[in-house]
Design a protein around this nucleic acid. Structure first.
Length: 111
DNA sequence: GAGTTGACGACTT
DNA sequence: CAAGTCGCCAACT
C-alpha cells in the first residue's frame, strides 16, 4: 500500500538503514522525510515501532545533543546504552561522546 | 468531537 | 550564558 509514503514507515526504513556503530538524530530523520521540524513525530513513530512485529534499532536514534532521551521508554532499563556501547560508542552517563563521529546523516548517506 | 500529550528542535527573552 | 516558549503533526484519552 502507501506504506512507503507514510511518515512513520519512512522513519522505520531510515532507522533500519542505520549502519552498525552509527547513530542519527530525530531531526535528521525528520528532515530526510520532509518534515524537518516535526522531529516529535519521529519519536512518536519509534514509540509505535515497538508495537511493530519487527525490531527497530531505536537505540541508534538519539536527540540533537546525543542524549539517550528514549532510554526512559526503552523498558526502563539501560538496554539502549548497552547496545550502543556494544557497537563501540562511548558514553558520558546518557550522552554520546563525539556524537559527530558516530553521526549518520540519512540525507547524505541515503540521498 | 475536542483537548492533551509526546523518544525534539530552534528561536526568543 | 541559561532558561523558557513556540511550533510540528499525529495519536491517545
Amino acid at each position: 500500500m502507501d506504506s512507503e509514503n507514510n511518515f512513520f514507515e519512512k522513519v522505520y526504513k531510515v532507522v533500519l538503514q542505520i549502519p552498525w556503530g552509527k547513530v542519527t538524530t530525530y531531526g535528521a530523520i525528520a528532515k530526510h522525510i520532509g518534515s524537518a521540524q516535526s522531529s516529535r513525530m519521529v519519536g512518536w513513530a519509534l514509540n509505535k515501532a515497538f508495537n511493530k512485529e519487527y525490531f527497530i534499532p531505536a537505540h541508534r536514534v538519539v536527540n540533537r545533543k546525543g542524549l539517550l532521551t528514549g532510554k526512559n521508554h526503552f523498558g526502563g532499563t539501560n538496554t539502549m546504552k548497552e547496545l550502543l556501547e556494544s557497537e563501540g560508542i562511548k558514553f558520558n552517563e546518557n550522552q554520546i561522546i563525539n556524537l559527530e563521529q558516530y553521526f549518520w546523516d540519512p540525507n547524505i548517506e541515503l540521498f
